[in-house]
Amino acid sequence: MALLVLTVAASLAVGARATDPAAVLSVLIDPLALGAGSVDAVVVRELRVPRTVIGLLAGAALGVAGVVMQGVTRNPIADPGLLGVTAGSSFAVVVGIAVAGVTSVVGLAGFALVGALAAATVIALVASSARVGTSPALLVVAGAAVTAALSSLTTLVLLSDPQTLDRYRFWTVGSLTGRELDAGLALAPLVAAGLVGALIVGRSLDALALGDDVARGLGFRLAPTRAAAIAVVVVLAGTATALAGPIVFVGLVGAHAARAAVGGGHAARMPVAAVAGAALVLLADVLGRLVVPPGELEAGIVVAVLGAPLLIALVRSRSGVTA
């Protein structure tokens, strides 16, 4: 939590233009403190607050989506990005931009949700086969296949439409820049609904973790539970993707940070995962601003650089995956 506060502060204060922390604070407290035209005020209010808010929303959503996804697939290396759900959103968003000419963020979020739903359904079907469902590694391979197929289709649309490509190539690396604050605010209720839904399915996920038979014996109905959990993942991952682009590994990091902090209970892990996910995305965004000044490295790229070693470490550790 302290880390989150720190990263929020850093996200507001650090950037290509050096700003005085005191000035940042005063702008936040009173938007007109430095005068409406002050450059610092504009930078903080127009650029940094929106990307911080969007980073928080997307990171929290992806972190919790990771917990739910790992619970419903019983797979410690599940992640909405690794399993192709965000690729589904990407494809749908590109179709939305290129074919339907959608420009509003809310409209794109609708497309992202539909795409995430389709990809999640495919993955859930694949995971329900006995062979793949019992092997975490095979499920990740299936996710990579879904991602590959969808990115092929995405590319097909993009190549026929340079204008869309120009917008897409910045969106696809998972960037927090250039998003409007009202986009974040418009989608915040959706994220909130997803988070509440995640908490509700948390208890059922605990039961699922005991195995199908035990869960059924405890009086949980499996199919509705799975469907609800997948719906939650779709809402969270789809919205996050619409906001910040397809960011991989956040769910993985969030879920494992939470497991390390509070142990196995899904509902208890979710707040921690939300905080960890948000902190990770913001940290990546801040780091991205610092490493190549005066340019920036997009948050999604930094997360990939940070997250890939974590996945490797998880697979290597004995407790992680025994394939």
Binding site: L82, S135, A137, V141, G307
Partner: peptide, 14 residues
Amino acid sequence: GARFVVIGIAVAFL
């Protein structure tokens, strides 16, 4: 093992 493959996928994402 499958570990090789998953590590490879991590590298591919990187």
